[in-house]
Write a protein that binds this DNA or RNA. Structure first.
Length: 213
DNA sequence: CTAGTGATTCCCT
DNA sequence: GGGAATCACTAGC
């Protein structure tokens, strides 16, 4: 018999550790997004670590700004940013207050409330694609800058929370280069995913683009 | 399956 | 001014 998933929110101490410990430990956990229409549950299958102001791939690399201020705050809060003129992506802040490290939530499996995501994810050809990529994940869960700074170590009835759920055994965790990260920041193998999971996004190396017109 | 490109706007230089 | 932790769509193999 398999034990029931633990519905207790992750304690703040979970996030108050080095980001490279927290990132793989997040795989298999359940992110709960409570909306007026009902809850959406996401089982995390792919994440990336961003290791503070010394990491050239991190938004914190050039210091604190209005946009990234939440990264410099206490752990267990959501850092949500807007990118490519159209999309949002969500991170979880790790390490002690002031550390400015975070984990980007790259992909997951919608385990409850898939129907609630469909109006925003019309292009998804099947349920595996609903949150297959960081901007798709944020779109599916209706996450934008309004949720920047939200405490995820809260009751599941709050707008955003993360449950203890079922951790992924180490022998099922894989890691490799980060996706879409420009420059030398891309070399670190700080992308973590669950082996053979169909909801993990395809790897894409960073491609610098020249402006058209 | 891979590779190329347009979309669209905020933020920092 | 121009890049950005991306996606959707198209062409071609």
């Amino acid at each position: 018999m398999i034990a029931a998933p633990d519905r207790t929110p992750l304690p703040r101490e979970f996030f108050d550790r080095p980001v490279l410990e927290v990132a793989p430990d997040l795989l298999g956990r359940t992110l709960v997004r409570s909306t007026p229409d009902g809850p959406i549950h996401l089982r995390l299958t792919e994440v990336e670590a961003y290791d503070g102001p010394k990491d050239p791939g991190s938004h914190a690399y050039r210091g604190r700004t209005a946009r990234n201020a939440v990264m410099f705050g206490p752990p267990g809060h959501a850092y949500v940013y807007f990118t490519y003129g159209m999309w949002h992506c969500m991170n979880l802040v790790c390490g002690p207050d002031g550390t400015a490290s975070a984990v980007l939530l790259r992909a997951g499996e919608i385990t409850e409330g898939a129907g609630l995501t469909r109006t925003r994810r019309r292009s998804a050809r099947n349920d595996k694609e609903l949150a297959k990529g960081p901007a798709r994940l944020a779109t599916a869960l209706d996450i934008d800058r309004a949720l920047d700074g939200t405490d995820v170590c809260a009751e599941p009835s709050s707008p955003l929370s993360i449950l203890t759920g079922t951790p992924t055994p180490d022998d099922q965790v894989r890691n490799g280069p980060r996706t879409g990260v420009s420059g030398e920041g891309g070399v670190h193998p700080w992308r973590f995913w669950i082996a053979n999971d169909p909801t993990v996004s395809p790897y894409r190396a960073h491609k610098p683009r020249r402006r058209s017109t």
